[in-house]
Amino acid sequence: MSDGSAERLRLGKEVEGLRRALASRPMIDMALGVLMAAYRCTPAEAWQILVDASQRTNVKLHEIAERIADSAHGPAPSRPVREALQAAATRHTATRPRSGPSTSTSTAKAHP
């Protein structure tokens, strides 16, 4: 393979990855919002919760994000994902007293 062909292949893969990232970003942002509301945490903490839960469940981050965002208007994520989210929230927001998802009667559901 020539240097030009290898570079085109590399650039094609990079473009494909960037397109996937752009397509999944809105879902990730929605999931971050759900986590921030449910756990009353900062955007940075919500990001760490999402990353942590993804790593501990061995589920891709964008798939966890989709499950969380979908839970705002549908069924809760699976038990392993919920447990990983709760454990991650406890780890990443431990400096502030909190017993778990908000139990307020707001319009957002508190089961990410």
Rank of each mutant, 00 (worst) to 15 (best):
51 V>L: 08
67 R>T: 09
36 M>I: 02
94 A>R: 15
62 H>P: 03
24 S>I: 06
61 L>W: 00
71 S>P: 04
98 R>E: 00
16 E>I: 06
95 T>D: 10
69 A>G: 02
95 T>K: 14
65 A>F: 07
89 A>N: 05
31 A>G: 02
74 G>R: 13
34 V>D: 00
65 A>P: 10
91 R>M: 14
76 A>P: 13
70 D>Q: 08
66 E>F: 05
25 R>D: 06
15 V>D: 06
66 E>P: 00
28 I>S: 06
65 A>W: 07
43 P>M: 03
59 V>K: 14
92 H>G: 04
46 A>N: 04
14 E>M: 06
39 Y>V: 06
29 D>M: 13
27 M>C: 13
53 A>W: 03
81 V>F: 03
94 A>Q: 09
67 R>P: 00
9 L>H: 13
81 V>G: 04
20 R>G: 10
86 Q>H: 12
37 A>T: 11
92 H>P: 09
107 T>A: 11
57 T>K: 09
36 M>R: 14
79 R>I: 13
18 L>E: 15
8 R>H: 06
90 T>V: 12
47 W>G: 04
28 I>M: 09
45 E>A: 12
88 A>M: 02
63 E>Y: 05
69 A>T: 03
42 T>G: 08
92 H>D: 00
53 A>R: 07
25 R>V: 10
67 R>M: 15
65 A>Y: 06
20 R>H: 08
102 S>T: 12
100 G>S: 02
7 E>F: 02
97 P>R: 13
61 L>Y: 00
49 I>S: 04
33 G>S: 02
63 E>R: 07
45 E>P: 01
49 I>Y: 04
79 R>W: 10
97 P>D: 01
111 H>K: 11
61 L>C: 02
64 I>Q: 04
68 I>W: 02
105 T>N: 09
22 L>F: 06
3 D>I: 14
63 E>V: 10
44 A>P: 01
